[in-house]
């Protein structure tokens, strides 16, 4: 490792650091591995705090700007913490034609959250996503790992109320 101390961060526990170290060590010197490392680290922590990005860049012997550049380029990576429940609303064309816009505005109004943001109690993160390829079910919403098809604006609040 390039560094033998872990920066203090409230969202990263000692156990998480151990797993992060395993990921970074396994990818040292592997060309092109940074996207995979960021993905796995985000899976461990839930998002990518700047301190973690710095730590990864030292571990992989890359410049901080390079790693930050990659992390901020791809839609998969989040630099901010997410809510307890991730609500993905599909913004594919089929879902759009079938009325996802109305579904989104309903969620925004009812839970007081804007697209791409998290509710103040961190209950939901509302994320518009690119086509999920399930156009047969349009409009589609995915809450955590549950997929809901044919979501209409009058049903969506009822569905989301199941998630605490």
């Amino acid at each position: 490792m390039g560094t033998d101390f872990h920066p203090n961060h409230p969202d990263i526990t000692a156990d998480m650091w151990e797993r992060i170290d395993a990921v970074v060590t396994a990818n040292q010197g592997v060309p092109g591995s940074v996207i995979g490392v960021l993905r796995e680290c985000q899976e461990i922590v839930g998002y990518l705090p700047v301190e973690l990005i710095d730590y990864i860049s030292i571990g992989l012997n890359l410049s901080r700007s390079e790693v930050f550049g990659v992390a901020s380029f791809y839609a998969l990576f989040s630099l901010y913490p997410k809510g307890r429940n991730l609500v993905k609303v599909c913004m594919g064309t089929a879902c759009y034609v079938k009325g996802i816009k109305e579904v989104i505005s309903r969620i925004e109004n009812h839970f007081q959250v804007k697209q791409g943001d998290t509710t103040s109690d961190r209950r939901f993160s509302l994320e518009p996503v690119r086509c999920l390829g399930a156009c047969g079910l349009a409009p589609v919403m995915v809450v955590n790992s549950d997929t809901y098809g044919d979501v209409k604006s009058d049903k969506v609040v009822h569905i989301l109320n199941k998630y605490e």
Binding site: S33, E66, L76, F77
Partner: peptide, 20 residues
């Protein structure tokens, strides 16, 4: 990792190389 432009061939190759 979620970038539409990576369907473009040169961008896709950059992405496999671990870059933007």
């Amino acid at each position: 990792a979620g970038a539409f432009v990576c369907g473009e061939e040169t961008a896709l190759m950059r992405s496999i190389e671990g870059k933007r």
